[in-house]
Design a protein around this nucleic acid. Structure first.
Lengths: 255, 255
DNA sequence: AAAGAAATTGCAAAAAATCGCATACAAGGT
DNA sequence: ACCTTGTATGCGATTTTTTGCAATTTCTTT
């Protein structure tokens, strides 16, 4: 084939695909193959790449926008018991009068649910769900940070959030970790989430990571911060567990 | 048949089914087969998959929402049917590409739930619950406004909100009314709510009040705005209803 | 118990995914 | 230049998924 075939580079195709997905929320491999004038094989390989990079969701026959998620809030929580243990331990870190900043996630929800009613504290959060849960407690002040609401992450993201965070300094920040490892610290796969989490860390004096042990030693594509910025790590394991020993050596407090 | 290009991917169908179930609390296989243009067999297989994943409850002839069994979300909304009618009518005011600002309340929730998937719009809201509901729709951009979360009103309130609102100008604002009367316009009984609603009105070009007829002609202690600032009023009554005639005279559009 | 609706099962065909391989092209390195 | 190396792409064969249909079984309902 001549020029045409080579004129559109892979990156251009990717950009085109993302545009299409943003526009229509979905794409069919066959359509893309037509529009891009490449074989369906190539399209599929492109989709695989984009899916691996976490930018789209690949399904049989095409791909969906990441923001296309399942509308069910009542799904059972994975590893629920472990998360409850994590939340229970994390509770002890909250002292009266503290200003706390939290992310989203099921573990944080559990924590929010378990906070004793007699604790008096101020919570900043990027998660509406966590805010709703926290508001059940009489002695908490809950500040919900505003911004664009992300359907995938179920938290607010974007510049609005980051700019708000840049104006506060809290005592304690609870963060869930998508990826957490000795060598790479906290990592994640969503660019917007990474930006916001970075800002959250910057806005807090002490960072505590909540994570079930299963997520330890996993690495995602994008870095949020190094291990030395993590003051504490809460898992469902006993601090003496040998899976955690290497973190202890790095002066991460274990709970 | 294979001639027809497959237009809906499996996950899309699943999402569609879940949404239908959340909306109606139940679905019939036959209906879904029609709406999705696939055989009932396929629908049944989809239902099986969703049921296996614990997302729905499959029954003879269709499926039920899981939350239907948990009285969790199913708390009754007062005058639910009337509010549904109000929401239905208000829907028609939303045009493609609009920027809409909304408050909280059960009527707004109903509206958020009923928005068709093909509408493309941007929603600003002070209610986390509404934000969550809106985010179920693929083509909406949802901006959750941040601020102190009020346990009573279940919306964010305070200076943070007001300052944010002062920086935007939207096409349309949907507001529920606690008190609504010919002489005193919109009134409310919570000072913080009043401040925020005032700011919301100022931030929008067109104000539409959603209210069940029961709340008409009631007055609360604090004033939000005069009737002449209200461009439209949506109730469950027919516009020709005589209870509304005096509002019509004041040049409030009735729906 | 009988009629009818819904579910299950087996099967076949279409669509999509996967895998191996050959080709084409770019980038160097010698 | 020539060769090597690595990446990208397309093609064909094979496998897996998905889907609809028909035959059969299992409810519901009356």
């Amino acid at each position: 084939m001549q020029g045409i075939t080579r004129t559109m580079l892979k990156k251009e195709r990717h950009a085109f695909i993302i545009r299409q997905i943003n526009l229509h929320n979905k794409v069919l491999s066959a359509d893309l193959s037509n529009q891009l004038r490449v074989s369906e094989d190539t399209v599929r390989r492109d989709l695989i790449e984009l899916a691996d990079a976490g930018k789209i969701i690949k399904v049989h026959g095409g791909a969906l926008s990441k923001s296309f998620h399942f509308p069910f809030q009542h799904l059972e929580v994975y590893a629920h018991d472990a998360k409850k243990v994590v939340a229970q331990k994390a509770l002890k870190l909250i002292k009266d009068g503290m200003i706390v900043l939290t992310g989203g996630g099921t573990t944080m929800m559990e924590l929010a649910r378990m906070i004793p009613d007699d604790i008096r504290a101020t919570f900043f959060t990027i998660s509406p769900l966590v805010a709703l849960e926290l508001s059940e407690h009489p002695n908490l002040t809950v500040i919900l940070i505003g911004g664009q609401f992300s359907k995938n992450a179920q938290v607010v993201l974007g510049s609005e959030v980051i700019s708000f965070l840049s104006d506060i300094k809290v005592d304690l920040c609870f963060l869930g970790a998508n990826g957490f490892s000795l060598s790479d610290g906290i990592t994640d796969s969503d660019w917007d989430v990474v930006q916001v989490k970075k800002a959250m860390i910057k806005a807090s004096n002490k960072l505590v990571v909540l994570s079930i042990s299963e997520k330890l030693n996993s690495v995602k594509p994008m870095k949020i911060c190094n291990l030395n910025q993590v003051a504490g790590l809460v898992t469902e394991l006993k601090p003496s567990d040998e899976k955690l020993s290497e973190y202890q050596e790095k002066r991460v407090a274990l709970y």
